[in-house]
C-alpha cells in the first residue's frame, strides 16, 4: 500500500509539469569567486523559486560546494550578490537568516556525548532568547519530528553510539526543528547505504510537498538527482553549463562534455525520468 502511494506520488509529480512556479526567493546574481585567472566560480546567475527542488550537479572541482557555501553565506563571493526574499543575504541578522534557511553538510554530526534529543533541540536555537527560552513550548513540535523520523527509541542514546545512517537522520531532525523555508543540502547521502539514501530523499520530498519547502541540493548520484529534482543545474569549471528539467540535462552529450564518461540514458520504466547507464571505456569502443 505504502509503495503504491509513493508510486502515485511519483506519477503525479511526473505528470504535473510544468508545475506552477512560485516567486523567486533565492537568487545568485553574477557571482564570481576567487582572484586568480581561473576563478572557482565565474559569473554565476541562478534563480530558485518557492517550493522547487533544484539539484546542482557537476564533476569534482566544478565549484558546486563553493556555490552552496556562498548561497548559505558561509563564504563571501569576490563579486556579485545573493538575495533572499529580495534582500541581500548580508543584510540578514544571523538568527533571522537561520529561521529562514537551514544547511545540511556532507559531514554529519561529530561523535559527541550529547543525546539525540539534545541535538535535535539545538535546532531551535534561532528562536530562543539568550537564556534559552522560547515564546511557545517547542516540545510537542520536537516530539512530532522525532516520531516522524523514527527517532523516539533513540532519544536518549548518545550521538557517538549511533551508526552513520542514524546520525544523518538526527542531523535531518535538527534541520526540521529549525523549521526553515529553504534548505541547502551538500551531498547529504554520500555516506549512506542505498536504503538510507532512498529514505532520506523520500523524507525530504514529503517535507517539500507538505510544507512548500524549497530545496537546493548538490548531488553526486545523478540517478537520484534525476528522480527527485524538479530542476537541475549543471556546473562545470565554475560556470553553469546548463539548467533545465532532468530530461533536458541528463543527456549523453552532457555526460561526454562535462563528466567525460560514456553513458546511455534510458527512461525509467515507471516514472518519466531519465536514468543513467554507464559504459566502461573498452566496452564502448568495441560497440562503436
Amino acid at each position: 500500500m505504502r509503495e503504491q502511494n509513493s508510486m502515485n506520488h511519483f506519477a503525479q509529480m511526473a505528470d504535473a509539469r510544468p508545475a506552477p512556479l512560485g516567486e523567486v526567493i533565492l537568487s545568485a546574481q553574477a557571482i564570481t569567486h576567487g582572484y586568480s585567472k581561473l576563478p572557482v566560480l565565474q559569473d554565476i546567475s541562478l534563480e530558485i523559486r518557492k517550493g522547487e527542488w533544484l539539484g546542482i550537479i557537476g564533476p569534482n572541482g566544478s565549484g558546486k560546494s563553493t556555490l552552496l557555501s556562498i548561497l548559505s553565506r558561509a563564504e563571501q563571493p569576490t563579486s556579485g550578490e545573493v538575495q533572499l526574499y529580495g534582500r541581500p543575504l548580508g543584510a540578514y541578522k544571523r538568527k533571522e537568516l537561520s529561521r529562514l534557511m537551514a544547511v545540511l553538510q556532507q559531514e554529519t554530526i561529530p561523535p559527541l556525548h550529547y543525546s539525540v534529543r539534545e541535538v535535535v533541540e539545538m535546532g531551535r536555537f534561532p528562536y530562543q532568547s539568550w537564556w534559552g527560552t522560547e515564546n511557545e513550548d517547542s516540545g510537542p513540535f520536537i516530539d512530532h519530528i522525532m516520531e516522524r523520523l523514527q527517532l523516539e527509541q533513540l532519544a536518549d542514546r548518545r550521538i557517538d553510539r549511533l551508526s552513520g545512517g542514524q546520525r544523518q537522520r538526527v542531523a535531518l531532525a535538527k534541520l526540521m526543528a529549525q523549521s526553515p523555508s529553504i534548505i541547502l543540502l551538500d551531498e547529504p547521502t554520500t555516506y549512506l547505504d542505498i536504503h538510507y539514501q532512498m529514505q532520506f530523499m523520500d523524507i525530504i520530498r514529503d517535507w517539500q510537498q507538505e510544507c512548500g519547502l524549497t530545496v537546493v541540493s548538490v548531488l553526486h548520484d545523478l540517478n537520484l538527482a534525476a528522480l527527485y529534482c524538479d530542476r537541475i543545474a549543471v556546473l562545470n569549471e565554475g560556470i553553469i553549463h546548463g539548467q533545465g528539467s532532468a530530461a533536458e540535462m541528463i543527456t549523453r552529450e552532457c555526460f561526454e562534455q562535462v563528466f567525460h564518461v560514456h553513458a546511455e540514458i534510458v527512461s525509467h520504466p515507471k516514472v518519466n525520468r531519465p536514468q543513467v547507464l554507464l559504459c566502461p571505456e573498452e566496452l564502448y569502443t568495441s560497440v562503436e
Binding site: R94, M101, Q105, M122, F125
Partner: peptide, 9 residues
C-alpha cells in the same frame, strides 16, 4: 560551520 548555520555568531 554548523553552529553558524544554526544562528550562532
Amino acid at each position: 560551520r554548523q553552529a553558524a548555520h544554526m544562528g550562532l555568531h
